[in-house]
Design a protein around this nucleic acid. Sequence first.
RNA 1: GGUCCCUUAGCUCAAUUGGCAGAGCAAUUGACUCUUAAUCAAUAGGUUGUAGGUUCGAUUCCUACAGGGAUCACCA
Length: 499
Amino acid sequence: MRHIMLDDQSTIRLEKLKKLEELGIAAYPYDFPKTHEFKEIADKYKDISKEELEQKEEVVKAAGRILAIRKMGKSGFMHLYDGEAKLQVYVRKDIVPDTDFEVYKLLDIGDIIGVEGKLFRTQSNELTVLVSQLTFLVKSLHPLPEKWHGLQDKELRFRQRYLDLIVNEDTRKIFNLRSKMIQLIRMFFYERNYLEVETPMMHPIAGGAAARPFITRHNALGIDLYLRIAPELYLKRLLVGGMEKVFEVNRNFRNEGISQKHNPEFTMLEFYELYKDFNHYIKLTEDLLDVLNKNFLTDCILEYDGKQINAKPPYKRVKFMDIICEKSGISLDELWDEEKLKAFITKNIHGEEMPPTYGKMLELMFDHYVEQTLQEPTFVMYYPKAISPLSKRSRIDERETERFELFIAGMEIANGFSELNDPIDQRSRFEAQVKDREKGDDEAQGVDEDFLSALEQGMAPAAGEGMGIDRLAMLYSGTNSIKEVILFPHLRPRVAAVE
RNA sequence: GGUCCCUUAGCUCAAUUGGCAGAGCAAUUGACUCUUAAUCAAUAGGUUGUAGGUUCGAUUCCUACAGGGAUCACCA
């Protein structure tokens, strides 16, 4: 049996709750019929003067959590917070019923109350409810963190996110922004006649990306399943089935380290459209970001990590192999030659193990020399086949694919391509992956026969793309840690206290 | 997983060279009918993350462990 942890302050609050019950007050009432959100009140009356308010006799019913109490004998002010805005209320002994004033005297910071009363402006002109009736709604048995500094301890902020949300307004703003962003993204695709779909989170084969999966167990079937690392291969089965435009916003799971930019589960937007290629999706990406820019930025400037980044499309386009040459000084011939590349890495990149495959060497070159330099939004195009097992061969150079990634502030934001729809080519790419795995690349995929059968049925030419929602939220909220944009980021579990 | 840093009252933070563990907010009691980081007076609140060690004496020095942060590795 669990008991409430009783420190001095909680004991006192429990006693106050008992006194309320002795007054005949319901300790845990069932509802409160409020007429306004605080923000509605603020918006509606912001231009109404003190004098006009006196005449109008505007009565409101509203409810919120007490963030501050300033008691002055027979009257007092409180600030309430309803999760969106704050509202000041004024309680006077000669105005509220006697019982209500007794209740008021037993209130603590953190309690939630409902009030009814007419609006007025104080001497300092703050819009305030002159309380005529006060309704007790719930007692908070623990004190709130300090009002001035708020809750600073990151661990407490993430583990007890509810406290963070009550006390730190910025936190609330970040999650409002995130929600609005996802809403705008959905609208963007709905307007273009995309169908929103949900594909499995548990896969018999983890495919569609290069990553190590989480393993879970299905008892009745007696098999292991993998939490998906990407929805890609299922979404493309839908393309085969004739769904012409689809998108999915949902979680992916990757069994890797936790860092400032990585959470084991993260939210991914993926979208696909038949009869289009990667050029079309580069443009669509710019259109989508343009919508977000207009909603979240002023003058299209991203303020990130102390830098100002111009986010106005169109964005710079560079070739993957060219940009590596430009930033590292290697020649294109050397870069295309595995042995010469190996020699270059040995000579110039120290403290790194030699990657097991040619593809991994290219990724090392890119990560080491290029990624951090891409601060202004930049499309990196034409990734080599070796590291793009699901993208269609380039029309220009068959060693490359029609794949692009978008980088902003040194972060990978999107990854898209002309989808490979040749089942024979796809099979050989999968087989190359198997060879990579044998060479020691434990993120290489296996052969997905079921997916190949779908492709054999015939998939029209298509473009597809994935975007990391958490990282977008980081960019637009100006936060440099993914934990700030995920309500409950993964932390090591605390060892439970002895019960 | 490696390296470095952090952990003191409910919260935000102090504590000199190793020498009585303190402040603000929150809380309690009292005063106060336009305050807004309300004000004034008084009071209470601590096994200094945990377990060891060195020492006459440890918040302070050492070791291990736990949690967090930064960074590297892996990745989006």
